[in-house]
Design a protein around this nucleic acid. Sequence first.
DNA 1: TTGAAAGCGCTAACAT
DNA 2: ATGTTAGCGCTTTCAA
Lengths: 343, 343
Amino acid sequence: MAGVTIRDVAQAAGVSLGSASRALNGGKHVSARVARDVAAAADRLGYQPDFLARSLRTRSSGMVGCLVSDVANPLYASIVQAAEARLRDAGYLLVVANTGNDPARERAAAAAFRGRRLDGILVAPGSNANDKTWRDLAAGGAPVVILDRDAPAEDGEVPWPSVLVDHRGGARAATRYLIGLGHRRIALLTPGARMRPGRERIDGFQAAFAEAGIDPAGAQVCVQESSMDFAHGDALALLGMASRPTALVALGTRILAGALRAARELRLSVPCDLSMLSIGDTDLAAVHAPAITALRWNLEEVGRAAAELLLQRLRQGPGSGPSRALLPVDLVLRESCAPPPTI
Amino acid sequence: MAGVTIRDVAQAAGVSLGSASRALNGGKHVSARVARDVAAAADRLGYQPDFLARSLRTRSSGMVGCLVSDVANPLYASIVQAAEARLRDAGYLLVVANTGNDPARERAAAAAFRGRRLDGILVAPGSNANDKTWRDLAAGGAPVVILDRDAPAEDGEVPWPSVLVDHRGGARAATRYLIGLGHRRIALLTPGARMRPGRERIDGFQAAFAEAGIDPAGAQVCVQESSMDFAHGDALALLGMASRPTALVALGTRILAGALRAARELRLSVPCDLSMLSIGDTDLAAVHAPAITALRWNLEEVGRAAAELLLQRLRQGPGSGPSRALLPVDLVLRESCAPPPTI
DNA sequence: TTGAAAGCGCTAACAT
DNA sequence: ATGTTAGCGCTTTCAA
């Protein structure tokens, strides 16, 4: 059952090695009789082609790598899931590696990927520390698609294919909405100001204030790691201030949860005393009472678009097809935002 | 930079191909001078070994496959994450495939894994439909570790290595706790009665009733898919009954969320009117107000233990080391359970 | 210890 | 259209 080579099939079918190979693959330049006999023999013997050997010849492994900081993060999990689905349909296997945003681990993974001849890479770099690594990988012939991160600096050549989420537009719309409700002091709680998503959010947040011609001092940016305890402390401090923010915009599950807890402890009712807006439409936001108004973007679409961009290059070569996908962010109106209390 | 073969290294170091290979690997039967020269040459040329070619010889790819229904499910995401971490430390790459519990996709993935010569497999089968597939895989020399599922029937040979979670014990403890609080009508909302986790939970749930000598009619088992809308409808129906359950035990995020929403709509306050207990300690359970009492088990440990079981077999051969890990389930007491209302 | 040579299973170029 | 042959890059005999 196992260990049946194409040789055995050829022999059993009474044809040469080459004919068997041709019959098993495209089927071009093969007579009907040979095709039939080979197929029959392969079937009878339970022949399973050895992709490894094939890869060694064709210099293509039929595998794609995915490099993110942590697949257990729901943000990435959906991306990986969607990318895998699309790639599997195209016959590729997906290799995942968690980097924890550690440049050394990123490099190690890149080396492992190259050594296994992975055909392409989906990556969300944790910094620009490894720009050279990605450039080498791409130069080595494996297309690299960037996931919602800044692309490495150009060589003046083709742009890096990347899937970007319009965090800036989202933050701007959310802030504009709150300003429209009458809020003048709003705090943004987000992690990672160094990475694209955080930076763009802060940018959009501040842009909305500027556009509205409102005192920018009311736009509090509170950068922090994505931990509930930190968020809780920060929110507590923020809401304890003399002229406290009347609205909070908080990322994801942990930070949002910390902020909600702080509001509860301070006996601030949402949305009467405090408006709350979630960046990312998590289960928590949807289920909380009151339901939290949220910024939403399509995570599956990020993975799918990234896979698509990669497949395009895998089939048509580098530089083919569109090189960027920009995904919109929507504002989902719920019950957690209201005009600020009149003090 | 790229395309440097071991040949080039040997030539640059002025030694034979074989010597270079020996020097680059174990370094046994190699003189100090050769070792030094080869290392220097490899370094200077930026030699990157080709794992594919090596694999073809050694019949080992340095990769492990992981087959689950959906990596985006937080339950699996953490397992994958932890397994990847452990396997990476051991030099393996992790290939993931989502099966959606579809037997055909499971078989396709198994074939792809075998074709790529993956060294081992971590799998959570969606049914017993593919027992033969797993058996073939194992017979082909790739150890198969089962993740919290029923193992395929034995051949009378070595038992399948598997990592099991004590869902039965957990459900029993939770139910016992609710009974102790005075509840006599409790509903269990869980998906997948056909799979091990659901079956064991139902088992433990009913066992607790039997032990306590309570009318088993009070133990409502409500099997359903893991969707918020379904759960919401089911919970609504359940709580609208004349003698409604006074406590709900609900799985994970979606079902729990649906149940919570139903309770809110019915103006049933938790825990005064209705006790709520979560199977799985999700963010939602921890963050909800009131915080939800939950059954918790260590997902990372599932992945880590599975990787450990696999590595054991990869290194020592099949049948070596322990073949089962049984992980405990703890009851985390919070604020969502109280004695039933006196009607 | 070292070099030469075989071969892992396959595809592709070259004959026929 | 088919058979033959030459590798892909590496490890591993087998001699020396």
